[in-house]
């Protein structure tokens, strides 16, 4: 025999997928990565609830404060406040996700996956797409808790809102993974950048308090913050105002961020060793 056998003809008669058509390959690989990322969530769904502690605190201690300040009853304050908290969940949960990749880079798990015949883009796409799942589940839990205190979202609006937010989460997750890859040799950098961006982004989005109450320069800055568009869109949608121009703006912001995040993320993934 003069040729080296392929994995397909490996000694135990296996049918290993040595050469696959690339486009189908990327989809298949993305699904494999997606499923892998999702498994620990399915095995331990309570981890999702535990990571809701912070948004729940905001709901419990900030919502009533807001009601008191504006003079609105709690249920009306929640109509305004809960959509913002849902975006907060997306922000906090997803921005942190890069730390999982960082850990897998520092252990050998990422390296092992890089040696596997997996498309590099799929390693990013599958991971980023998984971000949608905890985000939507957590948003549903928070909305459910708020419902006990009179929060009444438009269900159709909420469905559309979560779909847009999920797309946004893909972009944000991809950026978080890209940050993890860039800071793989100095993990403090991941946390510094992530924390450094998280709070300004949150405060400049009108998530907690209406920006109308702030100075003009803050309002101008907030227009450069994609989160602002998400918060505005979610507020309109959760209250059933489909015709609000904020909805379209939010959808565009989500798609742009997802496209940007995946582009940056895939590029980073190709140089992730």
């Amino acid at each position: 025999m003069t040729t080296v056998p392929t994995a397909r003809e490996s000694p135990d008669g296996s049918t290993g997928g040595a050469e696959r058509a690339r486009p189908a390959g990327i989809l298949h690989d993305s699904v494999s990565v997606f499923v892998r990322e999702l498994r620990p969530v399915i095995r331990d769904p309570f981890s999702l609830v535990f990571s809701l502690m912070q948004p729940l605190m905001f709901l419990a201690f900030f919502g009533p404060l807001l009601g008191g300040m504006t003079g609105l009853p709690l249920d009306q304050a929640f109509q305004w406040f809960v959509p913002g908290i849902v975006v907060m969940i997306a922000l906090f949960g997803t921005a942190m996700t890069g730390s999982n990749l960082l850990f897998e880079i520092q252990s050998g798990a990422h390296e092992r996956m890089l040696v596997a015949p997996v498309s590099r883009s799929a390693l990013m796409v599958g991971r980023a797409c998984k971000e949608m799942v905890p985000l939507v589940l957590q948003a549903l839990v928070i909305s459910g808790v708020a419902a006990f205190f009179g929060f009444r979202p438009s269900l159709a609006g909420m469905a559309v809102g979560l779909a847009i937010l999920a797309v946004f989460g893909v972009g944000l997750g991809a950026l978080s993974y890209a940050l993890a890859i860039v800071s793989r040799n100095r993990d403090w950098m991941f946390w510094t950048v992530q924390q450094g961006l998280l709070f300004p982004l949150m405060l400049l989005s009108g998530m907690l308090l209406p920006l109308e109450a702030g100075p003009r320069w803050m309002q101008v800055l907030s227009r450069f913050n994609p989160l602002t568009y998400m918060v505005d869109a979610e507020r309109a949608l959760f209250n059933g105002q489909f015709g609000d121009p904020a909805v379209a703006a939010g959808a565009v912001a989500a798609v742009v961020l997802a496209a940007l995040g995946l582009t940056v993320g895939i590029r980073a993934m190709r140089n992730s060793i």
Binding site: R39, P40, N100, E104, S107, G108, A109, E111, R112, V115
Partner: peptide, 11 residues
């Protein structure tokens, strides 16, 4: 590889 190949949260 030299390091462990399985993700820590993975079964």
């Amino acid at each position: 590889g030299q390091k462990n190949g399985a993700g820590q949260y993975q079964r």
